[in-house]
């Protein structure tokens, strides 16, 4: 590129060619997040290894991690958390893509109606799902009235069930509109001429979807599913109120250890919490890396700078 060509990209810049200004502008937000999130993690780590805290003699100890990793309960909970988060994220991703495509051609009223669950608090959704799906819930009553079941015992267990169907139903109900909103915005940003061009070059609608729309949608899909996975994996109240009674998900395990009367359990709780963070960070990194390699490099995440 000639110097001239490079300058061509210098748009009407309006005093924005100085990078120290950029750092100054992000400083407040960045320092607050670093202080709260990073500081919190740091303090949690110090507590988990016994260097800081209510109990212990202030010397370095990895006992909490040993206890956390040594219990079979941890591994069962991890399995359950992964099962719920992965299944729900995958399902809501696929369904959201479908819904976004369906909504693209529909009126604005439809997209708006589909987004109405977005601002609803999770706890409200939980209450609704409980009153809808529990053995004495509305659906059970409907089936009884229709004569399909003769007592509430006949209704399949859908909340606090071993398969966590209630939990996943809730997450799908809440996260599909969220993902759809994001995907729809990305979808609307894709120029329709591209699909027309593909069709003109001989692509069937199905090929057009796989070869053009989906690749263009991919960054949006990666981002949205990332947020949804991270959220579900770390969520507490939904599996706490709707999930199986045993095993429980990792966040609930952390909570139980944290509120244990035995104060020694507190460092175990923190160790568990840090493991939870570590696992989600690694999974996200793995996902980004597998995703395409592109976002991985662009974000300078991990090793390669």
């Amino acid at each position: 590129m000639t110097p001239a060509a490079r300058l061509k990209n210098a748009r009407w810049a309006g005093l924005r060619d100085v990078s120290w200004r950029a750092y100054l502008l992000v400083l407040p937000a960045l320092s607050l997040v670093l202080l709260l999130f990073g500081g919190g993690l740091g303090l949690a780590f110090l507590q988990s290894v016994g260097l800081l805290g209510l109990t212990g003699d202030g010397s370095l100890s990895l006992a909490a991690y040993g206890e956390a990793l040594g219990s079979s309960q941890f591994w069962r909970s991890l399995g359950l958390s992964l099962y719920i988060a992965l299944t729900t994220t995958a399902l809501s991703t696929v369904l959201s893509i479908g819904l976004a495509l369906l909504l693209r051609g529909a009126g604005r009223w439809a997209s708006f109606a589909c987004q109405l669950t977005l601002p609803i608090p999770h706890l409200v959704g939980i209450a609704g799902i409980l009153l809808l799906l529990s053995p004495s819930g509305l659906i059970s009553r409907l089936l009884y009235t229709l004569g399909w079941i003769s007592t509430d015992q006949d209704f399949p267990l859908l909340v606090n069930d071993p398969a966590n169907i209630g939990v996943m139903t809730h997450f799908l109900w809440k996260e599909i509109p969220f993902m759809t909103l994001i995907l729809l915005a990305v979808l609307r940003g894709i120029r329709p001429e591209l699909a027309m061009q593909a069709r003109a070059l001989g692509a069937s609608p199905w090929q057009c979807f796989w070869q053009v729309t989906l690749p263009l949608l991919q960054p949006g899909i990666v981002s949205a599913s990332l947020i949804v996975f991270g959220f579900i994996f770390g969520n507490f109240e939904v599996p706490f109120l709707l999930g199986s009674t045993y095993p429980r998900t990792l966040p609930i395990l952390v909570y139980q250890a944290f509120t244990n009367v035995d104060l020694n359990q507190r460092s175990v709780a923190i160790a568990l919490g840090l493991l939870l963070s570590l696992i989600s960070i690694s999974l996200i990194a793995l996902y980004l890396w597998l995703g395409s390699g592109q976002p991985f490099r662009r974000r300078n995440f991990g090793g390669q700078r």
């Binding site: 000639t2 061509k8 210098a10 810049a13 309006g14 005093l15």
Partner: peptide
Amino acid sequence: GPSGCGKSTTLQLIAGLL
């Protein structure tokens, strides 16, 4: 001048935007 020759930059310099 042709695009990219620096004429817009010159204008921004004159206007005080750079």
